[in-house]
Design a protein around this nucleic acid. Structure first.
Lengths: 152, 152
DNA sequence: TAATCATGCAACTAATATTGTTGCATGATT
DNA sequence: AATCATGCAACAATATTAGTTGCATGATTA
């Protein structure tokens, strides 16, 4: 089953944007992520609608952080991306009247809800400022990337 | 993102098999699950290889439980299915040298590992016998399904 | 005002993973 | 010998996501 890496990638982008002077274009971000500008716009649109970034057209335009990193948590971004399913396993629904299916699904759902609550609680406690700080600590060894195209 | 319902469905099947006299054919199981006998064989093959079920050919053949339900946990079946990814979100790996990506991924991975450990621990504590017992409690209201084709 | 740059959006194509299908071989029962 | 059932491999269908293209709109700059 394929992974949804949008959360990881968007967090990466947002922290970079904070270090970046001026707006970052979709094209630049796409180059960093090894993807396409339209895909970037599609994904960033969700963050814009929730007020985490702004987009500006024209010369010098692009994407700009609309809030300080310390006011954004991993949970915020997860939700802004549409709060996609966290789990790749799901419940069968072929026989909703079957008491066995009900018992199986109730047990699985209970465990999954508990794990999900813990995961989201953790996400809610980590700010992007915290991530930026943590990455600064890793800065000692100089290998890194940036929005200035050191990627490719 | 599409869900992998094999765990849920196989648990359902295994509990039914315990109530079932004799072997259950792939065809019968497939009818119950609204799928195909070959798909059932593919999935059950993993459980057979781990010793949870046996398969027998010929007249009266099919699938038989190889252990009592109380000796099988949800975790056992999850593992027998290949321990597929539990989470549908994943980590970006485009810029492994980037300290920001590293910090982002370390944070996400930490939260996910914690949640995963909790989920698997829960799975390890639930036996199929427990599920069978729980479904018996639901038996008061008679709607149910069985391997005798009440499904379709 | 004209040229350029950048997003917004919709429609289309491509790539990928899973599921479903078919055909044939093998083994067991009757 | 006939029937039933799994085993396996190759192929087709399906669904989802990612990527692409084309055009419109708005902002900046000269």
């Amino acid at each position: 089953m394929r992974h949804d890496t949008r959360l990881s990638r968007m967090l990466h982008v947002l922290v970079h944007m904070d270090r970046h002077e001026g707006a970052a274009t979709s094209e630049t971000i796409a180059a960093m992520l090894g993807t396409n500008a339209v895909v970037v716009r599609r994904t960033m649109a969700g963050l814009r609608d929730q007020g985490y970034v702004r987009s500006e057209k024209g010369h010098g335009g692009g994407w700009i952080l609309a809030r300080p990193l310390r006011d954004i948590t991993l949970l915020d971004i997860h939700n802004a991306l549409g709060a996609p399913q966290l789990f790749s396993i799901g419940l069968a629904g072929d026989n909703p009247n079957c008491v066995i299916e009900q018992a199986v699904n109730a047990s699985l759902a209970g465990a999954m809800h508990e794990a999900e609550a813990i995961l989201l609680a953790k996400f809610g406690k980590v700010t992007l400022a915290g991530l930026a700080e943590e990455s600064s600590k890793r800065w000692a060894k100089p290998a890194h990337c940036s929005l200035e195209m050191e990627h490719s």
